[in-house]
C-alpha cells in the first residue's frame, strides 16, 4: 500500500511543495561554468540507484502497460499474443469491476476527508503550548510505525463480535452490542473506513504540523490584537499558509487510499459479498488467483487513468479557488 502503503508517506507531500519552492532562488552552486567540462562524476554516482530504478520500477511499469494489450496468463504454454484493446472492451462490460471501482472511490473519499479534518484538528492542538505535548506528538505517530497487517489484526480484535472491546463497551452503555461489524452487509464498509482513517492520520498530521510551523507567528498575534476571533484568524492567517501543504497531502492521500490493499485484505478480504472489495483486491485476485495477467494489467491502467483525471480536476479546481489571494 502505498505504496502508498503504507508507511513513509506524509513526508513526500511536503517535499514536493517545498522542493518546488526552494528550487528557484538557489545560487547555481556546483553547476558553475568551468567545472561543467569535467562533470562526468554524477553519472558514476547516479548509476547504482539508476539501474535498479530503471530495471525494477520504470521498466516494469512500461512492461505492465504493454501487458494490458495482450492475453498474458499465468502458466500458459502457448505464446502470448497481442489482442489490441480487447481487455479494455471486456472491462467496460465487467459490472463486478465497476462495482469494485465504485467501492474504491467511496473508500478513498470516505477515508481521505475525515482523515484530513481530524488530522487538521490534531495538528492545530499539537501546535499549541499544551502540557504533555511531546508525549502526544510521540503517541500520535504510533499508527504510522505499525505494520499494516498488525493494524488490521488489531482492529479485527476490536470489532470481534464476542471478545471485542467495541461491542463490550456498547453493551455497557446499553446500546445492545451484538453486531458483527465486519461481516454485516451494511456495517462492513463503514467499519473498514474507520480503520483507514485511523491508520493514515499520523502522516497527515505530521505534514500539516510542518505546514503550521510555517505560519508567521507575528501575523497571528497582530490579528489577535486587532480583535480577530479564532475562526477568523484561522481563515485569514493560518489557512493561506497551510494551503499548499494541505493540497499536496490530500492529493497524495487520495492516491494512497485508492491503491490501498493490506488493511482491507486483513480485515475482510473484500467480503462480505464483495462489499469491501477495493479495486486493488479485485485486480490482485484476477492476477494471482485466476492468473489473468493481461486483464489485471488493464485494470491497473484504468485505475491510473481515472485517478489521474480525478486528481487533475481536484487540483485545478482547488488552485483556481485560491487565486483571489
Amino acid at each position: 500500500m502505498a505504496g502508498p502503503t503504507p508507511t513513509r508517506k506524509g513526508a513526500d507531500a511536503v517535499t514536493s511543495v517545498t522542493e518546488a519552492r526552494r528550487s528557484a532562488p538557489r545560487a547555481p552552486g556546483p553547476a558553475r561554468p568551468g567545472r561543467r567540462a569535467v562533470d562526468h562524476g554524477p553519472w558514476f554516482l547516479v548509476l547504482p540507484a539508476l539501474i535498479p530504478i530503471l530495471v525494477l520500477s520504470v521498466g516494469p511499469l512500461l512492461y505492465g502497460i504493454m501487458l494490458a494489450f495482450t492475453d498474458a496468463q499465468s502458466g500458459r504454454t502457448e505464446p502470448t499474443r497481442w489482442i489490441g484493446t480487447l481487455n479494455f472492451q471486456d472491462l467496460l462490460q465487467d459490472t463486478l469491476f465497476w462495482e469494485s471501482f465504485r467501492i474504491g472511490l467511496v473508500w478513498a473519499v470516505g477515508v481521505t476527508v475525515p482523515q484530513f479534518l481530524l488530522a487538521l484538528g490534531l495538528a492545530l492542538l499539537l501546535n499549541q503550548d499544551l502540557r504533555l505535548r511531546w508525549a502526544a506528538r510521540a503517541l500520535a505517530i504510533v499508527p504510522w510505525a505499525m505494520p499494516e497487517v498488525v493494524v488490521g489484526i488489531m482492529w479485527r480484535l476490536t470489532y470481534n463480535p464476542d471478545a471485542g472491546i467495541l461491542n463490550e463497551t456498547l453493551r455497557d452503555l446499553g446500546f445492545g452490542g451484538d453486531r458483527d461489524w465486519l461481516s454485516g452487509l451494511a456495517t462492513a464498509l463503514p467499519a473498514v473506513i474507520v480503520v483507514g482513517v485511523w491508520a493514515g492520520m499520523p502522516q497527515t498530521t505530521v505534514a500539516l504540523l510542518a505546514g503550521l510551523q510555517n505560519t508567521p507567528r507575528e501575523l497571528h498575534e497582530a490579528a489577535a490584537v486587532d480583535g480577530a476571533g479564532a475562526w477568523r484568524r484561522f481563515r485569514t492567517v493560518t489557512w493561506p499558509a497551510l494551503r499548499p501543504v494541505a493540497l499536496a497531502i490530500t492529493a497524495l492521500n487520495l492516491i494512497w487510499n485508492f491503491n490501498s490493499f493490506a488493511l482491507v485484505y486483513v480485515l475482510t478480504n473484500g467480503g462480505p459479498g464483495g462489499r469491501t472489495r477495493l479495486p486493488m483486491l479485485f485486480a490482485y485476485e484476477e492476477a494471482f488467483r485466476y492468473g489473468q495477467f493481461g486483464y489485471a494489467a488493464a485494470m491497473g491502467c484504468v485505475m491510473v487513468a481515472v485517478i489521474s483525471v480525478l486528481l487533475a480536476v481536484f487540483l485545478v479546481g482547488r488552485l483556481r479557488g485560491g487565486d483571489e489571494r
Binding site: G64, I255, A283, A287, A297, I307, S308
Partner: peptide
C-alpha cells in the same frame, strides 16, 4: 520519479515485476 512513483497502483507494477 520520486513524486510520480507514489501514484502508481502496485498491480500495474507487481505483475511485470
Amino acid at each position: 520519479w520520486v513524486v510520480v512513483s507514489q501514484a502508481f497502483p502496485f498491480v500495474l507494477l507487481i505483475i511485470p515485476l
